[in-house]
């Protein structure tokens, strides 16, 4: 009998290709939903006229025009950079604090009221404060992203650790794992159940808050472009920028978050009945 832990490379590649195809296939449903939205949009356009709501077609044309403009790419790139760095910042800080709180009930009890306070303060207040502290810079946007998305990431990580299966810890200990290795081999992995939804939420918040902070702090980027569009009463361009922000978010989510989640949650798929996978 040949001793192998893993099936041969070809099989593994085939399996992975299969998963990618399945994933793309599931995109049809998403596409259908998007076209439904476009139809409602078109209806709104026909009811209220182009000055209130430009047609989806005109908006896409505006996006197309922006796509040919290199300065527009720089604008979008700036927002993307700010949203991503803010997301990485909040991910790093939120996950580390959350893990500590998950293991230490005392920290959790201390943190809980702080989290409530943090969630109670409206993001707009943070924008004002950050503008005073940092002016219209990247730091303003990142700070606002950090405080807005911190509670959800923190709680996601803390919950993951706090609700872990203690039996697995005991098992790992019985096989000679010290506290650090227990955390690395069984603890960390169990947080993904609650951490991933939290990170997806945080990513969305990062983009929304980045645009909002840019607009209010007059810090350029997509938010700045939206402010200009408002001044010019240019609905088509405004909607085009909204569309671009959404597309950026979707692109990041599907290239960054979902592939990682798919790899990590492979075992969960094994539990699903065949029909649910499609």
């Amino acid at each position: 009998m040949t001793a192998r832990l893993k099936p041969p490379l070809a099989t593994r590649l085939a399996e992975r290709a299969g998963r990618v195809l399945e994933f793309l296939w599931s995109g049809w449903a998403g596409l259908a939903a998007l076209f439904l939205l476009a139809a409602v949009w078109q209806a709104g356009h026909e009811a209220y006229g182009p000055f209130i709501l430009t047609s989806p077609q005109a908006t896409v044309a505006a996006v197309w025009q922006l796509a040919g403009d290199s300065s527009a790419w720089a604008v979008a790139g700036l927002t993307l950079q700010r949203a991503l760095t803010g997301f990485v910042l909040v991910g790093g800080i939120g996950v580390s604090l959350g893990l500590v709180a998950g293991y230490s009930p005392a920290t959790m009890r201390l943190a809980q009221p702080l989290i409530t306070v943090l969630m109670g303060v409206p993001p707009i207040a943070w924008i004002v404060l950050a503008m005073i502290w940092f002016g219209g810079s990247d730091a303003t946007v990142r700070t606002v992203i950090l405080v807005s998305a911190l509670p959800v990431v923190f709680l996601g990580a803390a919950q993951g650790i706090a609700t872990r299966d203690r039996g697995l810890d005991r098992m790992a200990q019985a096989f000679g794992a010290g506290p650090l290795r227990r955390f690395l081999t069984v603890g960390l992995r169990q947080t993904t159940t609650t951490l991933f939804p939290a990170l997806v939420l945080a990513l969305g918040t990062a983009f929304k808050v980045a645009v909002m902070a840019e607009l209010l702090a007059n810090a350029g980027g997509i938010g700045g472009a939206l402010a200009d569009a408002r001044i010019n009463l240019d609905i088509a361009t405004a909607l085009a920028w909204v569309l671009i922000a959404v597309v950026l978010l979707i692109a990041v989510e599907y290239t960054l978050v979902h592939p990682v989640k798919g790899e990590i949650d492979r075992w969960r798929r094994a539990a699903q009945p065949w029909g649910v996978k499609r």
Binding site: L5, K6, G167, L168, R170, M171, A172, A174, F175, G176, A177, R181, T185, V186, R189, I264, R266, W267
Partner: peptide, 22 residues
Amino acid sequence: FQDPSLLPWATAAGNIAFGLRL
């Protein structure tokens, strides 16, 4: 143990290898 205490995210082979990995 009374309940098998297997790692749900690892295959049977991965679970058997757990002690060896440690």
